[in-house]
């Protein structure tokens, strides 16, 4: 046991570096993906048929294709059309796409949950459509969507481990590299797993708490 602890101690800095990159990729993907998801959720209801179909395609491909394929497409595929991305940029691009696609559905559901009376009240007050979105619909819709969005953020941190396949030195890659050099895969993968759990378990509990609170106030 103490043998495992000292092994973990030796490699902890490298593993934590990996965790840092995992968190950065996840954070960047959420920061780009969620606003894009909001935009998609609004544009899917646009009057222009072209815009609607375009958004639908972006959403359906982002949700329908495995994240693993999106990652490899961004990293190995885009250079063929002259866009060479670093593994970090490729990971952010692919995971942002995925985030935008999934969160657009979550946010759309949130917007639809805003009671009709809210729209009628802002209509009756004479708020413009843009103001109605900005001050009434979007803030309330996002509030409803918040637990699901947080739940999705947890899944995104987990999905960032797939960037292993495009040589991004994130948590799983670091664990794997240490495994190949020391041949002690088991303890180092366990450490990586524990670190994921350390973040995801509290976050999941928070989602549950959030949902119960929202249900009480509804």
């Amino acid at each position: 046991m103490s043998d495992i602890l000292s092994f973990w101690g030796t490699y902890l800095p490298q593993i934590l570096d990996g965790l840092g990159i995992s968190l950065k990729v996840t954070g960047a993907s959420l920061a780009i993906g969620i606003p894009a998801g909001l935009a998609l959720a609004l544009m899917v209801q646009a009057k222009s048929r072209f815009l609607r179909w375009f958004c639908l395609a972006v959403v359906e491909i982002g949700r329908g294709a495995p994240a693993l394929i999106l990652l490899q497409f961004a990293y190995f595929g885009l250079p063929n059309v002259g866009v060479s991305l670093t593994s970090f940029a490729a990971a952010v691009a692919a995971l942002s796409w995925s985030t935008a696609a999934y969160t657009s559905e979550i946010i759309r559901a949130g917007l639809q949950a805003v009671p009709r009376g809210q729209i009628e009240a802002s209509d009756a007050l004479g708020l413009s459509f843009a103001d109605q979105l900005r001050f009434v619909l979007v803030p309330q819709g996002l509030r409803v969507a918040a637990p699901a969005l947080l739940g999705f953020a947890v899944l995104m941190l987990q999905a960032s481990s797939l960037a292993f396949t495009i040589a991004l030195p994130e948590l799983l890659s670091q664990a794997y590299i240490i495994g190949t050099t020391t041949f002690r895969y088991m303890p180092i993968l366990c450490l990586a797993g524990l670190l994921y759990a350390c973040i995801c378990i509290p976050a999941t509990l928070l989602v549950g708490w959030f949902e119960r609170r929202l249900a009480r106030h509804a």
Binding site: V154, Q158, L172, M186, L189, Y196, A197, I201, T204
Partner: peptide, 24 residues
């Protein structure tokens, strides 16, 4: 349930394939 859901699936795959495979 919480534990299984909080660790990425790919890590479980690696744990079984590389982890168990390396000497277990």
């Amino acid at each position: 349930i919480i534990f299984l859901r909080s660790i990425p699936p790919i890590v479980w795959v690696f744990l079984l394939f590389f982890g168990l495979g390396s000497g277990f």
